[in-house]
Write a protein that binds this DNA or RNA. Structure first.
Lengths: 216, 216
DNA sequence: TTTCCCTCGAGGGATAACCCTGGGGTTCCG
DNA sequence: CGGAACCCCAGGGTTATCCCTCGAGGGAAA
């Protein structure tokens, strides 16, 4: 008997192409969706054995697919989920693979060399295994990543830094947060210190802090 | 008789999926390639009627496909070229559509709602027409884009701004450019003026200028 | 409890970053 | 020959951004 599979991907072209490829590989495609909400409805109506889920989808175009995967895992534990993304999204990925990694997979579109590889991965997750791209594994095991200077900031300091990075003045930040300009100055000084920005005549620490913040 | 088509796309999954979709739509897929160079070789050996080319491909992952399209247009004028990209790359696109836009197309993967739309577009470019996504058209006609505030900067001002955006102080910039700190101040003031950054107590103009610069 | 960090504020001071005006020079264009 | 723009500099001023130190209050951990 064939394995039933559903697909969620915002690109109609990719979605349809994938459907045909999987049918050729012996799967039965029982549902196609362009966003997470639609797929959730399809799954609820007729749960397939495995769902292929893209991560970046409408409406948020950020980590919608990851949230959908977590939700499917909770509401329909029998449905295997294979995430298929362009990039590695480690941020919320740990949440998904931390608890029960069974029947779950995460592959990168660019690193799937042939349709057969995907078909094989689908069979494996449907059978209960966990399928991870080596790149994803590397990112997951290296988490929690060694704390960068930005992680050493206190919550309030981080809040101030985001406003600094929006181009606010110290006074403007004070008004927004209901603080004194003096207090904001203190936070800014603390931020510089924790970011390792020593006082030099050649550069502007405020801009440097903004750059560090923007670069992650 | 069926239309012969070749496909270049770095994603094997997308490439293969597209191939089966097109074959279902009545095309004959005579070649698949994962990068531009490979496709150029295939085209040289057995020129198809139309080539579907992704823009971001190895090895540069920038505008390889655009360069390939221009090259195909020159070396094999009889081969229609349909660019299929994720984003609009206006920068070198004008070069392609400026001269002879016949047998050329540019569609966005996300905006192709159904495989039939792509099939239709392929038939049209193979017939000599030009097929452009409305979004692409809008970008092309608005080029040269109305000069943004950044374009009004003088060369020297732009030079100063890039150094400001690297976190340099006025003195540091003066040292690097062999100027006086006073002169740099003058440029910075000019930059603020041209960027329309008026003096307000709520924000830091230097950071705002950096943000504008970074956002292109 | 002691200790530490976070939060918030203050006084007092240094200086970098800004404003203004004015002046030199060049090039290019009408 | 004017303008007009760019490039470069200077004097003299205001203020925001930084420095230092000191302190109060709270919560969390040792």
């Amino acid at each position: 008997m064939t394995v039933q599979v559903m697909i969620a991907d915002d690109s109609a072209l990719f979605r349809e192409g994938l459907a045909v490829l999987l049918e050729r590989a012996g799967f039965t495609v029982t549902g196609l969706a362009g966003d997470g909400e639609t797929l959730a409805g399809l799954v609820r109506a007729r749960p397939p054995e495995v769902a292929v889920v893209d991560i970046r989808m409408p409406p948020s175009y950020t980590v919608e697919g990851l949230e959908l995967a977590i939700r499917l895992r909770r509401e329909h534990p029998s449905v295997a989920v294979l995430l298929l993304s362009n990039h590695v999204e480690t941020h919320h990925a740990g949440e998904l693979f931390g608890g029960a990694p069974h029947r779950t997979g995460y592959l990168l579109k660019d690193r799937v060399g042939a349709p057969d590889e995907l078909a094989d991965a689908l069979h494996r997750v449907a059978a209960g295994q966990t399928v991870l791209d080596p790149t994803v594994v590397a990112r997951l095991v290296s988490r929690p990543r060694e704390p960068g200077p930005l992680d050493r900031l206190s919550p309030r300091e981080r809040e101030v830094l985001t406003l600094v990075a929006e181009g606010r003045s110290n006074q403007g930040i004070a008004d927004l947060l209901g603080l004194t300009q003096k207090t904001v100055e203190g936070y800014v000084r603390g931020i510089f210190g924790k970011l390792g920005l020593t006082d030099t005549a050649a550069d502007n620490r405020r801009v440097l802090a903004v750059l560090r913040y923007l670069r992650g």
